[in-house]
Design a protein around this nucleic acid. Structure first.
Length: 554
RNA sequence: GCCCCCGUAGCUCAGGGGAUAGAGCACUGGUUUCCUAAACCAGGUGUCGAGGGUUCGAAUCCCUCCGGGGGCACCA
């Protein structure tokens, strides 16, 4: 009897009561599935629901009566030990140990598939994240989106969605020109130009370009030399970014170059079509998108008066490109400094005839940096930028990804470098990983002691309160996977894992899998091994959704 | 002026209308002849920023205000 079975039974009880007229209710108002939760207080049973409180008014009855009606229907069910009405109309349900323990077998048998579902089958998510300008290494903020975006992608996939992870290189426009100027200046030993980029990496890339292209490059006319540095320099920067993301365990399916949209004529075509459909107009020598017609607070320039395409022109063509490749959901992870972008992006989609609701912009708050408890201003000029490599060097990939993915993106995140560099267990990732390593160790010891899963699985033996808690935590996992996808909040997986790890550690302390020396191996030990392995499976499944390794030993 | 996010324990943060608001860290004490002590057990702290409203019930939803952060380009 899983919580889902129980929810279905409650739903059936309500439908039955509607069918034979005991309550008056539109069947569509019965939620599916019925929401069940693990009560904090064990006195309130294994599972609890407030469904009677929610539906009583609509059903023209009072909550306690409605709860009693459901309780009566559940009472006779196989696996249900008791159903009690409490307080204003809560329904508290207690399961037989055997019925609850059956879950351990289910999890072990389903393995990697446990918790996964097909809710989003047929939906194709294009998830664009990081997309940092290729003018420098990825900084702390971009690293957060790398961790969160990849976790979100994994969560969506676990719900049956098809996902394309996408990185948009803004390799067109003035920022890249400044980048090229900066490289050339560095090669010539000149100071960093105004609006340019400084820092050691500029010198390194400039040196590489010079080595490849030869010293004669510097004798070329300035604009030609700059072109060499632009082309070769951005290529190096792309590679560095891809490499550092790969080191971080994030590999994009598509690295998209803005330049390609201009080169292929896609931008021109999109703008022509918008002009033809009456969505563009000319004013002050520039061309404007009538984005106010689609909810934006002002119209946007798409072709500047100097004839160059504005940034949004690329975005417009890019939206269309994503849709043409099959995506049904266009998800963007952007930093809070881009929030003004939502309205214009949706307006652009609408003008193109793309459903604006398919454009989902997730705005994440910025990462602030502390050192020894004091705020640090990150500044490229001052050389205090913290890059993805700096973070990985300081704490390792697992701790970095976990720390960045465990908070809601609505929350500004403070990272204290000194604290993380200490390698203490202040980072909860160790708590979760240690739980997994323990399960692996228990399995090894069990095997050595002759405890095997084959034969002797008797869930009725799982009577310790710690076993009920652990089973309850395990049973929650599929709902967390759903919720994380629906709300686009992968951090819920991390928080769940911390709870599960806690339940496992407590169980481990109270319930031995391996018999004490001299004691015989009994069915209790065999059955607990199933539970141990179930916990191991769910810890591994959850860590996988976060892109964090599940170590066998620590 | 307008828009977005936040305000919960000493710190970092969870809590998508429910029962006594939680975790980790930090602090104090305890637990190992036996599956990993990166663990477990015990000890305690909250005007959930403030004030109104909706509700049987609000940290959660709505409004106002206060405080902090981030935006509001013919930059990308």
């Amino acid at each position: 009897m899983t919580p889902l079975d129980l929810a279905a039974a409650i739903g059936a009880a309500l439908s039955g009561a509607v069918a034979d007229g005991r309550i008056q209710l539109d069947p569509a108002q019965i939620p599916d599935p019925i929401h069940l939760e693990r009560p904090k207080d064990p006195k309130h049973g294994d599972w609890s629901t407030n469904i009677a409180l929610q539906l009583a008014k609509k059903a023209g009855t009072n909550p306690r009566q409605l709860a009693e009606l459901i309780a009566a229907a559940l009472g006779g069910l196989d696996g249900v030990k008791g159903a009690e009405v409490a307080g204003p109309g809560f329904l508290n349900i207690t399961l037989d140990a055997a019925a609850a323990g059956e879950l351990a077998r289910t999890i072990v048998e389903q393995g990697h598939g446990f918790g996964r579902n097909e809710d989003l089958k047929g939906q194709w998510f294009n998830v664009e994240f990081v997309s940092a300008n290729p003018t420098g290494p990825i900084h702390l903020g971009g690293t957060r989106w790398a961790a969160v975006g990849d976790a979100l992608s994994r969560v969506l996939e676990a719900n049956g969605a098809r996902v394309t992870r996408e990185y948009y290189f803004n390799d067109h426009g003035s920022q890249i020109d400044h980048f090229a100027e900066s490289l050339l200046a560095a090669a010539l030993g000149e100071p960093t130009p105004e609006n340019g980029y400084g820092g050691q990496y500029i010198k390194e890339i400039a040196a590489k370009v010079l080595e490849e292209a030869g010293p004669d490059t510097l004798k070329l006319p300035r604009d030609q030399a700059q072109e060499v540095f632009r082309e070769r320099g951005t290529a190096h920067m792309f590679q560095e970014i891809k490499d550092s993301l790969h080191e971080f365990g994030v590999d994009f399916d598509v690295y998209f170059h803005e330049q390609s949209l201009h080169a292929s004529g896609a931008v021109t075509k999109a703008l022509d079509d918008l002009r033809a459909s009456g969505n563009l107009y000319e004013k002050d020598g520039a061309w404007w998108l009538k984005s106010t017609a689609y909810g934006d607070d002002k119209d946007r320039v798409v072709i500047k008066s100097d004839g160059d395409a504005a940034y949004i022109a690329g975005d417009i063509a890019y939206l269309r490109d994503k849709v043409s490749r099959g995506a049904t959901h266009l998800v963007y992870l952007l930093g809070a400094d881009h929030h003004g972008y939502i309205a214009r992006l949706k307006a652009a989609a609408a003008a193109l005839g793309i459903d604006p609701d398919s454009v989902e912009v997730l705005i994440g708050q910025l990462v602030s940096l502390l050192r020894g408890g004091k705020p640090v201003r990150m500044s490229k000029r001052a050389g205090t930028v913290v890059t993805i490599e700096d973070l990985v060097d300081a704490v390792g990939v697992d701790a970095a990804r976990y720390a960045l993915a465990r908070s809601s993106i609505d929350q500004t995140l403070s990272i204290d470098l000194d604290l993380l560099a200490k390698h203490t267990n202040e980072n909860p990732v160790f708590y979760v990983q240690y739980a997994h390593a323990r399960t692996a160790n228990v399995a090894r010891k069990a095997q050595a002691a002759g405890v095997e899963r084959t034969g002797g699985f008797d869930p009725a033996l799982l009577t310790d309160p710690r076993e009920a808690d652990l089973l309850g935590a395990l049973a929650t996992y599929p709902r967390i996977v759903r919720q994380a996808a629906q709300l686009r909040e992968p951090h819920r997986v991390a928080r769940y894992l911390e709870e599960l790890a806690g339940a496992y550690h407590k169980w481990y302390d109270a319930c031995r899998v391996v018999p004490l020396a001299g004691d015989p191996v009994q069915d209790l030990h065999r059955t607990r091994l199933w539970l141990n392995d179930a916990a191991r499976q769910v810890l591994a499944n959850g860590l996988d959704l976060l892109g964090v390794t599940a170590p066998e030993r620590m």
